[in-house]
Computed example of a mutant assay.
Amino acid sequence: MLRRRMLIMLGVVLLIILMLGGYKAFSIYKMVQTFAVPKPPISVAVATATERPWQARLPTVGTLKALQGVNLSLEIAGTVKDVQFESGQKVTAGQPIVQLDSAVESALLETAQADLGLAQLDYGRGSQLVGSQAISKGEFDRLTAQLAKNKATVNQLKAALAKKHIVAPFSGTIGIRQVDVGDFLPSGTVIATLQDLSSLYVDFYVPEQAVPKIALGQGVHVSVSAYPSLDFPGTISAINPKVENSTRNVLVRATLANPDGKLLPGMFADLQVLLPNPQPKIVVPESAITYTLYGNSLYVVAEKKAADGSVEKDDKGQPILVAERRFIETGERREGLVLITKGLQNGEQVVSGGQIKLDNGAHIAISADKTLPAEQTSPPRTN
């Protein structure tokens, strides 16, 4: 009886072991079947490496200056009688700006003009009398000198009177006024600033080794932090004929138009000097480059090859595409494009989106990249 029970228990245990083994075998079979199924291709966006004229640029920084700019100030002291402008007003050359009290100078001028009239009468009589020898030659010389002195006094007072009347030396935009009616102003007091903003200068320095690359009339592109999305073109108008001893740099001046008055003197400017003789270079979108400490790389679209070197095709007869990781050397970046100096050929397709999911040799499918211009995107290649 005991022996029979033991056989039954052994049979039950053996059955359980067989069931567990079968379940495990079935699980392994399902896993093998799962891994045996080919993975679906990874959807990526691609762009075409294109060769285009690439104009080298010399980056530098500078400062904007007005075409004409002065601080309007007084040459002589006086009390402000009338302020004839508003802050920020556009003025024309010769337009009155400030009138100082000139009552004393006007009275002195009237006195001097009266003395001049008397001196002219005395000179006229003397010129008649000296001919008839009624007066001496020395007396006539004194009358001549007195006439010249009185003329000089009148001219001096007229000049002093003119300095009481301040006018705009050129057309431009006047700044915030610093004086009010009734102020007594000593000589040298600044009334306001006057700037001609129709055009601007931008002064910048270039290293002495770059001097052979620049010339008068050469183009520059200027940008300022106030308008980061705008680019202001200009041309080189002057090159200093001297190298600075302390920095070994050369001062260069460019002129740029400012029709909208957006640019202001004193602004800090980023410049790109356009160097001559553009060269054909290969460029790709910046999004295609992966930057690492080990070097820069990108994924190139390639056709999967079999062991015999033939192109593998899918069930639709289309070549199977894979991502081939390639290390490259990059150059200047500009306007969303990167210059490729080594490692890529013209016309090759590169992955511009979705490369974070890729590894070398990964099966890929091409989809449209809406972030790129139409000329940079490419349809899937077929035989």
Rank of each mutant, 00 (worst) to 15 (best):
M6F: 06
L161C: 00
N71Q: 13
P380W: 02
V70T: 15
G138C: 00
L74I: 09
E208A: 13
R177Y: 08
V37G: 00
F327A: 14
A302K: 12
I239E: 05
M19F: 13
K313C: 05
V167Q: 11
L2I: 10
S246I: 10
P319D: 03
D183R: 01
Q178N: 14
S229N: 14
T60K: 03
A107Y: 11
Y227G: 02
V190P: 12
Q113S: 14
P41C: 09
Y227I: 07
S367L: 02
D101L: 10
T60S: 13
L230P: 00
D260T: 14
S246Y: 03
F26N: 11
L143Y: 09
D196H: 08
Q146M: 08
I214V: 15
N249R: 08
A160W: 00
E110I: 04
G353D: 04
P276S: 08
L264F: 02
K262W: 15
V46S: 06
V61W: 01
V211H: 01
I340K: 01
I356S: 13
V44L: 06
M31R: 12
I176N: 05
P278C: 04
R5Q: 14
Y205F: 11
A45V: 02
I76R: 12
R3Q: 09
T377H: 01
L109C: 04
P212Y: 04
E324R: 13
A36H: 11
F327H: 14
I364T: 06
T290K: 12
L100T: 04
P276E: 04
L230E: 11
T341N: 13
K163H: 11
L118F: 13
Y299F: 15
A47Q: 01
L118G: 01
V338F: 01
L121K: 11
F140N: 04
K370G: 07
L263K: 07
F140L: 08
K151L: 07
D82V: 03
P373E: 05
T330I: 15
E244S: 12
S378P: 00
P265V: 10
V12C: 15
T173C: 06
I328V: 15
T153S: 14
L321F: 05
M19Q: 09
T153F: 05
G117D: 10
G361Q: 10
